[in-house]
């Protein structure tokens, strides 16, 4: 991440401990992960113990302490998708990518995650790649969809 950009985010919140989640959100959003030295910088700027920053960063699912692959694949495992076969879909995605939820492949192509309901239950089961929904998925369609993401 561009350090000027990072400094700018941090400076906006300097001295405001209550802004911790906002800062982490902005950095995560731009950088896709939270490097440990950046967490140190944030702790110092916001005047929060580093352990508290780490606690918040590990508590929320959105924050990642490791770099992510070029493509973020999210399989919805909400209850409606679950009833409509999300498990089999997830198996197919795991086979196609060779990784399990929470993992990134060696070539940094995919990071796989499962997640709670995104509110589009009617079109489940679905996978979301880099924010794009692929609705009414079947295990058979997985290979074709993922091919588009290199």
């Amino acid at each position: 991440m561009d350090s000027a950009n990072l400094d700018q985010i941090i400076e906006q919140h300097r001295g405001k401990p209550g802004d911790l989640i906002h800062v982490l959100m902005e950095v995560q959003h731009q950088n896709h992960w939270l490097p440990r030295d950046v967490l140190h910088q944030i702790a110092e700027a916001l005047n929060i113990p580093f352990s508290r920053v780490l606690r918040i960063a590990t508590l929320y699912k959105t924050f990642s302490l490791t770099p992510k692959g070029r493509n973020e694949v999210h399989v919805c495992t909400g209850i409606s998708c679950h009833l409509r076969g999300a498990n089999k879909l997830l198996d197919a995605v795991e086979r196609a990518t060779g990784i399990k939820p929470g993992e990134t492949d060696a070539g940094w192509r995919f990071t796989l995650d499962t997640g709670s309901c995104l509110g589009s239950c009617s079109i489940g089961p679905e996978i979301i790649v880099n924010g794009t929904h692929h609705a009414r998925m079947t295990p058979a369609k997985v290979e074709d969809v993922l091919k588009e993401y290199q």
Binding site: P49, S51, L54, T58, L59
Partner: peptide, 9 residues
């Protein structure tokens, strides 16, 4: 000192 804390959830 905050040398030990909870992590994860």
């Amino acid at each position: 000192k905050n040398a030990v804390d909870f992590i994860e959830r």
